[in-house]
Amino acid sequence: MGDEKFSSAGVGYHDHNWGDAPIKSLIHHWYWGRAEVGDFTVIAANITAAEKYGYTPQIQFLLAKDGDVLADDERAVTFSIDQVQVNEATGKPVADIVKYEARNGDNRYVVTFERMKTILQSRFIDDAPPEQRAQLQESGEDGAYLRFTGYVTVEHFVNENRVALEKGEALWELMYFGHAITPPQ
Rank of each mutant, 00 (worst) to 15 (best):
E173A: 03
V98P: 09
E88L: 13
V163N: 00
M116I: 11
L136R: 05
Y109A: 03
V77P: 06
D15S: 00
D73P: 06
A21W: 07
L165N: 02
W32T: 08
E114L: 12
Y55G: 03
A45Y: 01
R147S: 12
F6N: 01
I43S: 14
G33N: 14
R133W: 01
T153D: 12
M175I: 05
E160Y: 05
N46E: 04
Q58T: 00
G10E: 04
Q85R: 14
F79W: 09
D73N: 15
Y55V: 03
E169S: 04
Y100N: 04
D66L: 13
K24C: 00
N161L: 01
Y176Q: 00
F113Q: 08
T182H: 08
I59C: 01
F79A: 02
T149M: 14
Y145D: 02
H179S: 10
W18E: 07
F61S: 04
L146I: 05
A102Y: 04
F79P: 02
H14M: 09
V110H: 06
D68K: 14
W172E: 06
E131L: 06
D3Q: 09
Q58H: 09
A102F: 02
P22G: 10
Y109V: 00
R103N: 02
Y145V: 13
E160L: 05
A128F: 04
R34L: 00
Q135E: 15
K92I: 15
K65I: 11
I125E: 03
G143R: 00
V98R: 07
G143F: 09
V98S: 04
F61V: 09
F157C: 07
K99A: 13
F157M: 06
D96H: 11
T78S: 07
N161A: 14
Y13H: 07
Y145K: 05
E51G: 12
V154H: 08
R103L: 00
D20N: 13
V111T: 15
Q185W: 07
V154E: 11
Q85S: 15
P22H: 12
K117H: 04
R75T: 15
G143D: 11
P184V: 15
Q83G: 15
P57R: 10
D127E: 15
R162F: 01
Y53P: 11
D73Y: 06
E114K: 06
A95F: 02
A95Y: 05
V86G: 09
Q132G: 02
T56D: 09
G143Q: 07
E169Y: 14
R133L: 03
E160Q: 04
V94Q: 02
Y53W: 12
T149Q: 14
T48C: 13
F61H: 00
Q58V: 14
S122D: 03
F113W: 09
G67S: 02
G150T: 12
S80R: 13
F177N: 11
N17H: 07
D142G: 13
S8Q: 08
A134W: 01
P57S: 11
G168V: 02
Q121C: 08
K167I: 06
I97S: 13
Q60E: 00
A89Y: 03
A102I: 12
A50H: 15
Q185I: 05
D82I: 05
V84A: 04
N46L: 07
V111F: 11
N46P: 08
V42C: 04
